[in-house]
Amino acid sequence: MVVYESYFGCTQQVAEAIGAGLTCYGTVHVLPVAQARGMRAIDVDLLVVGGPTHAHAMTSAHSRESAVDRGADGVSAEAPAYGLREWFDEIEQGAGPAAAFDTRIDASALMTGRASKGIAHRLRRHGFHLVAEPESFLVSHDTLLPDEAARARSWAEGLGRIIVQTPASVR
């Protein structure tokens, strides 16, 4: 399962590329965070979670409102109230493999921050174990940089290989 939060479409593109990279390993569900509400993330072989980097971290209610003010596509008036932070508050404890990703401006992580670090922290806190270091995919303003979708797909293929090579008893 790939769960993502996206406001300008970049993170959605990355999530879909990750989903495509995992399809050769089984059925993949790629869901925006609002649609993942109430889903049992503990029932999946691999949970991949990602979101945009806003103000050096995961989105917040304030940063989501700002995204709407900046003209984010496809965001209803209700959307800013629910994001990854709220989703993590609702999900059950897990025990399976997981991975975290983000999208961020193409600049030093020291300057931009990385939402994937906070996502990884929350995954661990919920009992999941990371099978890869958190990954960032780069954007320029509200556009995914060239080759980032292909890089996301390749990253996901690597995640799939890790899962296939890990005995179920260890997962």
Rank of each mutant, 00 (worst) to 15 (best):
Leu145Gln: 13
Gly118Asp: 13
Thr53Gly: 11
Arg124Phe: 03
Ala77Phe: 07
Met1Val: 13
Ile162Pro: 00
Ile162Phe: 07
Ile105Arg: 04
Gly83Lys: 06
Val75Lys: 08
Glu135His: 13
Ala150Val: 03
Ala115Val: 06
Leu123Lys: 08
Ala156Cys: 10
Arg125Tyr: 05
Asp73Asn: 03
Ile162Thr: 14
Ala41Met: 11
Ser154Trp: 05
Ala77Pro: 01
Thr27Ala: 14
Ser140Trp: 01
Arg114Cys: 14
Thr143Tyr: 03
Thr103Glu: 06
Gly26Ala: 12
Arg85Met: 07
Gly21Pro: 13
Ala15His: 08
Ser60Asn: 01
Arg70Asp: 15
Ala15Pro: 09
Tyr4Gly: 05
Gln165Cys: 01
Met39Trp: 11
Glu5Gln: 15
Thr112Lys: 02
Thr53Ile: 15
Leu145Asn: 08
Ile42Ser: 13
Ala81Ser: 15
Ala95Pro: 00
Asp43Asn: 11
Arg161Met: 08
Ala99His: 10
His56Phe: 15
Tyr7Phe: 03
Ala36Met: 08
Ile163Thr: 05
Asp69Ile: 01
Ala150Cys: 01
Ser66Lys: 14
Ile162Trp: 07
Gly158Cys: 10
Gly50Lys: 06
Val164Ser: 04
Arg161Thr: 09
Lys117Ile: 13
His56Asn: 08
Val48Ala: 12
Ala15Ile: 09
Glu90Phe: 01
Gly51Arg: 10
Gly21Lys: 10
His29Trp: 11
Glu5His: 08
Arg171Leu: 14
Ala99Arg: 11
Glu16Lys: 09
Ala100Tyr: 05
Val2Pro: 09
Arg122Pro: 03
Glu90Trp: 02
Ala41Phe: 04
Glu78Arg: 13
Ala152Ser: 02
Leu130Met: 14
Leu31Pro: 07
Gln13Asn: 00
Gly118Ser: 11
Phe128Trp: 15
His62Ala: 12
Asp89Ser: 12
Ala150Asp: 12
Gln165Val: 00
Gly71Phe: 06
Ala120Lys: 07
Tyr82Ile: 05
Ile119Pro: 01
Val2Gly: 11
His129Lys: 08
Thr103Gln: 05
Ala132Val: 05
Ala72Glu: 00
Tyr7Gln: 08
Ala95Leu: 07
Ile119Tyr: 02
Asp102Arg: 01
Gln12Val: 02
Gly21Asp: 10
Ala72Pro: 02
Ala15Phe: 05
Tyr7Pro: 00
Ser136Gln: 01
Thr112Leu: 01
Ala57Thr: 13
Met1Asn: 10
Asp45Trp: 05
Lys117Ala: 11
Gly160Leu: 05
Thr23Asp: 13
